[in-house]
Simulated assay, not measured.
Amino acid sequence: MTNILEAIATIINHPIPDLLSSKAFESFVKDAFANTINEPEPSKHEKYDEVFSWNRSNQSNPPNLMLRNGDVIEVNKIKTFSGRIQLNSSYPKSKLFSDNPQITLACRECETWTEKDILYAIGVTSKDNTKENMKSLWLIYGDCYAASPEYYEGIKDQIASGINAISDVESSETEELGRVNKVDPLNITSLRIRGMWVINHPSNIFDYLDQGYDPKKNFQIIAIMKESKYLSFPLDSRTKIESISVPGFNINTQSIKCPDNPVNLIPAKIITYKI
């Protein structure tokens, strides 16, 4: 079964300049986890079926990818390190639960599951003529990045309650923040109120780390996970990643701030590869 450690090893074992020469960032992430970066297109799909129980990289409902009996992956791409990541109607998640109303029925039933760890794959890319180059790839688990659901649900519920409390308007049930009907004299216009969530890029959030983002490098991978998550991976995968001996590769344990309470620190594994 593949995992983030296997994916990092796959990326390091392939020439960086060619990583995005002929594929979109979403496809690259998928190929990294399926170990199909250099395989011809027809032979990839059989491997995808083995690796992923859910594979809908271009659809708006979470997640983009689900490793079979493993983690789910959300893929995001921006063009600058200072850019904020657009999550649209979905607030950042520390975990993904099968009863989330945004998940499609097909995804909910693609395998037997109730809760999965969520991995955010965040890339910064730049275009040179027709070629897209990757400058950085952050692989960060949601429980290192996002607070617990009640924080986001709380503010969402307060906003929705405030909208519904407005006098002299007719509201109706909706999965958005609110919907107000009959807002004009002819009673023919409605107002839909949607939440558009954004989150800071991890290079800003984790700027306190040793071996963090280095603006002088041409390309870098930075992976962050709880130490307990790292130790949950198969010994073969941990041995493979710990045996990598190439310039620019580093793996260590550091303390990161708890997303629910930044005063508390969490032991985390930080894996970096910079060239």
Rank of each mutant, 00 (worst) to 15 (best):
T114W: 07
D260N: 13
I266Y: 02
N69E: 06
E242K: 15
K182S: 11
L231F: 13
Y141N: 03
I122Y: 01
G123P: 05
K274Q: 08
I222W: 05
N181L: 11
T36K: 00
G212Y: 08
P101D: 03
D99H: 14
Y152H: 05
P215N: 09
R68Y: 04
I275P: 13
L67G: 03
D18R: 11
A147C: 12
C258R: 10
T130S: 14
S148C: 11
S203D: 12
V198L: 15
G142D: 01
D99F: 11
S203P: 13
I78C: 14
W197Y: 03
N58S: 12
I122D: 04
A223D: 02
N187Q: 12
S228K: 12
K240H: 11
V183N: 06
S82M: 13
V246E: 05
Y213R: 06
F81C: 13
N35A: 07
Y91F: 08
I73V: 02
T36R: 00
L139M: 03
H201I: 07
G142K: 02
L235I: 15
N200D: 15
N100A: 08
I224C: 06
N64L: 06
H45N: 10
S60C: 14
Q220E: 03
N13H: 10
L191K: 09
S94W: 07
T2R: 04
Y230Q: 06
H14M: 09
K216Y: 15
S237A: 08
K116H: 02
E111F: 01
P17A: 03
T112C: 13
K127A: 08
N64F: 06
R179E: 07
S22P: 09
R56M: 13
E39Y: 04
P92W: 01
L67A: 01
D143L: 07
I159A: 04
R238Y: 11
I159W: 03
F206Q: 06
N13D: 06
D210N: 14
K79V: 12
A34S: 04
E115I: 05
N100G: 07
N3Y: 07
E6D: 14
I140V: 08
P62F: 01
S82D: 15
I193V: 07
T272E: 02
D31P: 02
N204P: 14
G83F: 15
Y213F: 11
